[in-house]
Design a protein around this nucleic acid. Structure first.
Lengths: 331, 331
DNA sequence: CTGAAAGCGCTTACAG
DNA sequence: CTGAAAGCGCTTACAG
């Protein structure tokens, strides 16, 4: 049974009858130690179960060997929880591959500036992964003028930095095309808040698919994500175009379930109504009617974020934009 | 526009014409500084946007002002993602209330010892929140013999430390009772792996409810959580007791959906079949048949974990066991 | 190759 | 109240 008490480098160097600097060099794989001494020291370090104190090392090297991942303060709200779990796992994975720690930093979207500035000034991390939606132009400017490496998960209108995102327009295009292929010709679109970049892109993809198929019916409704607002919007949509035979939902999760409920409430025969949803949600698989769904490669995006960040940390130049494809699933 | 460049305490003290120690005292709210000087210093610190370097402070105080949260390496696997998201959010919240950072540490259940020992020896955190299921007896012994404060989310047979858990037996009892109240009398139970403590407790609660209602039929099947194994177990259960009119599922999430699929495949009329599920899962709400579900207060448990940990860090004595009730929901 | 010294940016006794 | 000094546990020039 090893002891859990830790030694200092001074104690280790005393035991080894060498200088502290020699132990340090041996540990860090630097040259300037004879191979024999290095082995001897490493053996002792292993026996004594010695680990360098993180804070002392960080102070001396000006490197924390820690990266920060910003997540929304309401991460547990609704089902985006799964999305963030996957991002977290992916980033944590890449970090631990490099023996880096992961600091999780919750951010309120309404006041991103203070928290970000704080972590930069306290020098608590060597770099940051930041969800684009949590940033505003001011915070982006501040980050850019600091020398803290950072990457963005998603894009933002004001940022052109090293973003990772999904091809929303293309995904929406292909999902809508699938509906056309299945023979639907009166297709509506219900989308999230129109201020979101991805909403705009998904709507654009939807329109493009209709035009590409020479279909005219392009009724589009945008809505907030609340149950009330969503249901109301769907009702309005159905009133406006009673002859719809299919719907493209530009968002998934519970949003989709709200839409389904209204369709059922209106007596729509779901097994003959076309449904395509941007963003897969596993319970769709269990629904008694067919759904076409687009899946984001969340894990790959998270890994890419981390890899890009490590490139920046090592003064290399990562791609300024990495775009991923949507995978289309039918159930 | 404030600068993002940071000063050191030496620079600040020079600007203020005082000693470093005076600035330090002013910043840390210690006595030994005149109120006038303190205000003057704080004003300067605000204007200069100074923040103490985290590593330097940690080294000097032997306090990192960081707590660690251990999460399973496969956190993104299946839908437990939501569970961990909520735990993470709750712990992060409590931490930031106290101006503590949160270090996220992924742990492989097969080799918990090395990672834990590492974070202890490197002194990267002031305390740890650990899911009980990720620990083994050896790791628990190691932790206990260190002086690192830690708390457990969930219980483990070998640990009697400062655990937070849910009243599984009581929850199972009440869920089963609900089925009885609704008039069902031939109730089966399908549960997860029997090695899990919570599986044993839920089965015990189920049995107790049947006994309490003078019902004899207590067919119980345990299974691994895979789709194949689960479906096979349900089929076996139905073959064994063809006259079942209700089922208590001792686990939720997709596990429940697998069970539903088999029931439907067997032509069971779901609207007249009783279903009670331990662990709510939001999509249940949208199912076309009624489900009785138990909800764990995940967020409260996470908050309690963190609060207990902070008590330990401050040398106080938190409750050695906090048990939470299941809330029963009908849809 | 080896080690003594200085320094990273703080805090904390200790004197004045 | 105030400040000079020592120390936290490392790393990194620098001399030998």
């Amino acid at each position: 049974m090893k002891s859990v008490m830790n030694y200092t480098i001074a104690e280790i160097s005393k035991m080894a009858n060498v200088a502290k600097s020699t132990v340090s060099k041996a540990l860090n794989g630097q040259k300037g130690v004879s191979e024999a001494k290095r082995q001897e020291i490493l053996k002792l370090v292993g026996d004594m179960n010695y680990r360098p104190n993180l804070a002392a090392r960080a102070l001396a090297k000006r490197k924390t060997e820690t990266i920060g991942l910003i997540i929304p303060a309401d991460v547990d709200y609704t089902l985006s929880g799964v999305y963030w779990s996957v991002i977290i796992a992916a980033v944590a994975d890449e970090a631990s591959k490099r023996n880096y720690n992961l600091l999780l930093i919750m951010l309120n979207a309404d006041k991103p500036l203070k928290t970000l500035e704080d972590t930069i000034l306290k020098q608590s991390v060597d770099g940051l992964v930041i969800p684009a939606e949590l940033l505003n132009a001011q915070a982006y400017t501040m980050l850019s003028s600091s020398d803290m490496p950072f990457v963005l998960q998603g894009r933002a209108s004001f940022a052109s930095h090293c973003c990772v995102d999904v091809r929303s327009e293309d995904g929406a295009f292909r999902l809508t095309k699938k509906l056309v292929e299945k023979g639907f010709s009166h297709i509506g679109c219900i989308a999230g808040p129109e201020s979101f970049l991805y909403t705009q892109e998904r709507i654009a993809g939807f329109k493009k698919a209709l035009a590409d198929s020479s279909l005219e019916n392009d009724v589009i409704v945008t809505t907030r994500y609340s149950e009330e607002a969503t249901k109301e919007s769907v009702r309005r949509l159905l009133d406006e175009k009673p002859n719809l035979d299919a719907l493209f939902l530009a968002a998934g999760g519970e949003f989709a379930f709200y839409v389904f409920e209204v369709l059922q409430e209106r007596g729509v025969d779901m097994s003959h109504f076309g449904i395509a949803v941007f963003d897969e949600y596993r319970p769709f698989h269990f629904l008694p009617f067919p759904v076409i769904a687009g899946r984001q490669p969340i894990r790959q995006m998270g890994s890419q974020d981390a890899r890009n960040l490590f490139q920046l940390i090592e003064k290399e130049t990562p791609p300024s934009l990495s775009l991923f494809d949507i995978e289309i699933l039918e159930s």
